[in-house]
Simulated scan of single mutants.
Amino acid sequence: MDVSPQYRKAWEGFWSATSDAPGEAIWDSDPSLTAVPHSELLLPYADTALPVVDLGCGNGTQTRYLATVFARALGVDLSDAAIGHAQRADTAGVAEFAQLDLVDADAVRALSERIGDTNVYMRAVIHQSEPEARPAVAAAVAALIGERGRAFVVELTPASKDLLQKVAEARGGPPPKLRRVIEHGLKPADASEEEVPGLLRAAGLTILADGDTALAQTEHLPDGTRIDLPARWFVLAPAG
């Protein structure tokens, strides 16, 4: 199974039209607001001697931080253009980056065989995936952690969709960074409240801890308020 050509084209188009400037993508927030607190939630459960794979790494901002916490960090993304951004930004060569379609079970299996059991970091991937592809994305997390790895998964909730719609419909229309997401046909916060934990459990994952949070964006409202999107996080282990 692979993602649809339309989905692949949407992401390739978005990243191809994005510059290397930090924060140009609406979700490209500073690690102090994302990977740092997320790692603090994961670390009590994870072996940092194992690698970490950042699924849907985009331009690699969070991956580069994760490389300071875990023995080895690899960022993967569907988009070749995103991987290009990540490689150019990693001037110190602290992480590795590679193109990967999470829905391609054979490609995921090959990565697992190459690196062994690994920790996984996945921020806001399931919610914007095509509905028919979401079980495969969850299965990729399970396949990669193997027996010894742990995963941190955080996904937008439907409340984020409501907030984004309100922002988009405000006077003056959506702010520039949100407009780019919409224009490229990307669909944030498209999963229901219970869909994500259900998919994770169905993939053979046990939820060790979970909670509510907000994902900081790099876009602001006209009054200067940063857009923070409601989300839910999960720390996961293999079932059994």
Rank of each mutant, 00 (worst) to 15 (best):
G84E: 13
Y121H: 14
V53N: 08
T218F: 03
A209L: 11
E113I: 02
V69H: 05
V53L: 06
Q6I: 03
S160Y: 06
A136M: 12
I126S: 05
E40Y: 00
A143W: 01
G75L: 12
W11E: 09
K166S: 15
A239R: 11
A151C: 05
Q62E: 15
G211M: 07
D210H: 12
Q217I: 00
A89W: 11
R148M: 07
Q6P: 00
V36M: 13
P31L: 06
S4M: 01
S16F: 05
D90R: 12
P238Y: 00
P158E: 05
P44A: 04
G146I: 04
R148E: 14
F97L: 03
G58H: 03
G13T: 08
E132C: 01
I182D: 04
Q165A: 15
V3C: 07
L186R: 12
G172T: 08
A168H: 09
G149F: 09
D47Y: 08
L33D: 14
A139K: 02
P238H: 12
V69N: 02
I115N: 08
E12L: 08
S112V: 02
T34S: 15
G172H: 12
V52H: 11
T61I: 13
K177N: 01
A159D: 15
S192N: 07
I227R: 01
L156C: 02
G75I: 11
V36T: 13
A89P: 05
L74E: 06
L205C: 12
L74Y: 01
V181W: 13
A89S: 14
P44H: 06
A107Q: 11
R201H: 12
A107N: 09
D212S: 13
G211D: 06
G211V: 02
E155H: 00
E169A: 10
T63N: 10
A237L: 04
T206N: 09
Q128A: 10
D223I: 11
S29D: 13
A92I: 00
G211P: 08
T63S: 10
V69R: 15
L55N: 08
A25N: 07
T34V: 13
L41P: 00
M1K: 11
V125M: 09
P222C: 09
L156V: 00
E193P: 00
A170Y: 04
V3W: 08
